[in-house]
Protein backbone atom coordinates (compact mmCIF):
# COMPACT_ATOMS: atom_id res chain seq x y z
CA UNK A 1 0.00 0.00 0.00
CA UNK A 2 1.58 3.26 -1.11
CA UNK A 3 1.84 6.21 1.21
CA UNK A 4 0.08 9.40 0.11
CA UNK A 5 1.84 12.68 0.98
CA UNK A 6 0.77 16.26 0.18
CA UNK A 7 2.96 18.20 -2.29
CA UNK A 8 3.48 20.87 0.38
CA UNK A 9 2.57 21.19 4.05
CA UNK A 10 -0.16 23.69 4.84
CA UNK A 11 -1.48 23.98 1.27
CA UNK A 12 -4.59 21.88 1.94
CA UNK A 13 -5.96 19.66 4.69
CA UNK A 14 -4.45 16.18 4.36
CA UNK A 15 -5.28 13.52 5.21
CA UNK A 16 -8.92 14.48 5.61
CA UNK A 17 -12.33 13.00 4.85
CA UNK A 18 -13.21 16.15 2.88
CA UNK A 19 -9.91 17.85 2.01
CA UNK A 20 -9.95 21.60 1.35
CA UNK A 21 -7.51 24.29 0.23
CA UNK A 22 -6.16 26.34 3.13
CA UNK A 23 -6.17 30.10 2.77
CA UNK A 24 -5.71 32.92 5.21
CA UNK A 25 -8.12 35.73 6.00
CA UNK A 26 -7.16 39.09 7.44
CA UNK A 27 -9.16 39.83 10.59
CA UNK A 28 -8.65 43.57 10.06
CA UNK A 29 -9.84 43.98 6.46
CA UNK A 30 -11.47 40.63 5.64
CA UNK A 31 -9.32 39.89 2.57
CA UNK A 32 -8.42 36.25 1.84
CA UNK A 33 -5.25 34.84 0.28
CA UNK A 34 -3.94 31.48 -0.97
CA UNK A 35 -1.67 29.91 0.10
CA UNK A 36 -2.07 31.05 3.69
CA UNK A 37 0.11 34.10 4.34
CA UNK A 38 1.46 35.44 7.64
CA UNK A 39 0.54 39.02 6.78
CA UNK A 40 -2.14 40.66 4.66
CA UNK A 41 -1.14 41.85 1.16
CA UNK A 42 -4.06 44.26 1.09
CA UNK A 43 -3.65 46.18 4.36
CA UNK A 44 -0.23 45.02 5.71
CA UNK A 45 -2.00 43.71 8.84
CA UNK A 46 -0.54 40.70 10.65
CA UNK A 47 -3.71 39.56 12.36
CA UNK A 48 -4.59 36.72 9.97
CA UNK A 49 -6.23 33.38 10.54
CA UNK A 50 -6.18 30.23 8.47
CA UNK A 51 -9.45 28.98 6.99
CA UNK A 52 -10.66 26.30 4.60
CA UNK A 53 -11.56 27.73 1.18
CA UNK A 54 -14.75 26.75 -0.67
CA UNK A 55 -14.45 23.63 -2.85
CA UNK A 56 -16.37 24.91 -5.84
CA UNK A 57 -16.24 27.99 -8.06
CA UNK A 58 -16.23 29.34 -11.61
CA UNK A 59 -13.38 29.36 -14.12
CA UNK A 60 -12.15 32.98 -14.48
CA UNK A 61 -9.57 32.34 -17.21
CA UNK A 62 -7.50 29.42 -18.51
CA UNK A 63 -4.82 28.22 -20.91
CA UNK A 64 -3.27 24.90 -21.91
CA UNK A 65 0.46 24.37 -21.30
CA UNK A 66 1.60 22.60 -24.47
CA UNK A 67 5.33 22.25 -23.84
CA UNK A 68 7.08 20.63 -20.89
CA UNK A 69 8.45 23.29 -18.53
CA UNK A 70 12.09 23.14 -17.43
CA UNK A 71 13.07 22.45 -13.79
CA UNK A 72 11.70 23.09 -11.16
CA UNK A 73 8.83 21.33 -12.99
CA UNK A 74 8.68 17.88 -11.41
CA UNK A 75 5.81 15.71 -12.54
CA UNK A 76 7.71 12.46 -13.05
CA UNK A 77 7.12 12.86 -16.80
CA UNK A 78 9.80 12.75 -19.50
CA UNK A 79 9.69 14.77 -22.74
CA UNK A 80 8.35 11.56 -24.35
CA UNK A 81 5.55 10.99 -21.84
CA UNK A 82 4.64 14.67 -21.27
CA UNK A 83 0.97 15.47 -21.67
CA UNK A 84 -0.27 19.06 -22.14
CA UNK A 85 -2.18 20.28 -19.11
CA UNK A 86 -4.75 22.97 -18.47
CA UNK A 87 -4.12 25.81 -16.02
CA UNK A 88 -6.68 28.30 -14.80
CA UNK A 89 -7.89 30.60 -12.07
CA UNK A 90 -10.94 29.41 -10.16
CA UNK A 91 -13.04 32.14 -8.60
CA UNK A 92 -14.14 30.94 -5.18
CA UNK A 93 -17.17 32.69 -3.71
CA UNK A 94 -16.28 34.93 -0.77
CA UNK A 95 -12.65 34.01 -1.07
CA UNK A 96 -10.08 34.56 -3.78
CA UNK A 97 -9.25 33.43 -7.30
CA UNK A 98 -6.87 30.50 -6.95
CA UNK A 99 -4.53 29.31 -9.72
CA UNK A 100 -4.38 25.59 -10.32
CA UNK A 101 -3.93 22.81 -12.83
CA UNK A 102 -7.08 21.59 -14.53
CA UNK A 103 -7.99 17.93 -14.98
CA UNK A 104 -9.15 18.87 -18.51
CA UNK A 105 -6.67 19.79 -21.27
CA UNK A 106 -9.04 19.97 -24.26
CA UNK A 107 -9.64 23.65 -25.16
CA UNK A 108 -12.99 22.70 -26.69
CA UNK A 109 -14.17 21.62 -23.24
CA UNK A 110 -13.00 24.70 -21.38
CA UNK A 111 -14.78 28.03 -21.22
CA UNK A 112 -14.67 31.09 -18.99
CA UNK A 113 -17.48 30.99 -16.43
CA UNK A 114 -17.89 27.20 -16.28
CA UNK A 115 -18.37 25.59 -12.90
CA UNK A 116 -15.49 23.59 -11.43
CA UNK A 117 -14.67 21.81 -8.20
CA UNK A 118 -11.42 21.42 -6.33
CA UNK A 119 -10.17 17.82 -6.29
CA UNK A 120 -7.11 16.24 -4.65
CA UNK A 121 -5.36 13.58 -6.72
CA UNK A 122 -1.99 11.85 -7.13
CA UNK A 123 0.44 14.09 -9.06
CA UNK A 124 3.63 12.02 -9.17
CA UNK A 125 5.19 9.00 -7.52
CA UNK A 126 8.46 9.40 -5.60
CA UNK A 127 11.33 6.90 -5.90
CA UNK A 128 10.35 5.44 -2.51
CA UNK A 129 6.84 4.71 -3.80
CA UNK A 130 5.11 7.61 -2.04
CA UNK A 131 2.27 9.15 -4.03
CA UNK A 132 2.47 12.96 -4.01
CA UNK A 133 -0.99 14.53 -3.80
CA UNK A 134 -1.78 17.92 -5.31
CA UNK A 135 -4.94 19.92 -6.00
CA UNK A 136 -6.68 20.23 -9.35
CA UNK A 137 -9.78 21.92 -10.74
CA UNK A 138 -12.26 19.59 -12.38
CA UNK A 139 -15.31 20.50 -14.49
CA UNK A 140 -18.56 19.77 -12.62
CA UNK A 141 -20.43 17.16 -14.63
Amino acid sequence: MSNQVPIAEGLFTWPAANPALLGSRCKSCGIAAFPAAKSCMACSGQNVEIEELPGRGTLWTWTVQRFMPKSPYNSGETPETFKPYGVGYLELPGGVRVEGRLTENDPAKLRIGMEMEVVFEPYRTEDNGDEVISFFFKPVA
Binding site: A8, L11, P69, P72, N74, S75, V87, R101
Partner: peptide, 13 residues
Amino acid sequence: GMWYGETGMMMTT
Protein backbone atom coordinates in the same frame (compact mmCIF):
# COMPACT_ATOMS: atom_id res chain seq x y z
CA GLY B 1 6.60 27.59 -2.42
CA MET B 2 8.42 25.02 -4.58
CA TRP B 3 5.10 23.23 -5.21
CA TYR B 4 4.14 26.11 -7.55
CA GLY B 5 7.07 25.39 -9.85
CA GLU B 6 6.90 21.61 -9.42
CA THR B 7 3.30 21.57 -10.66
CA GLY B 8 4.17 23.66 -13.72
CA MET B 9 2.63 27.02 -12.88
CA MET B 10 5.83 29.10 -12.60
CA MET B 11 5.56 30.03 -16.27
CA THR B 12 5.37 33.58 -17.60
CA THR B 13 3.90 32.27 -20.86
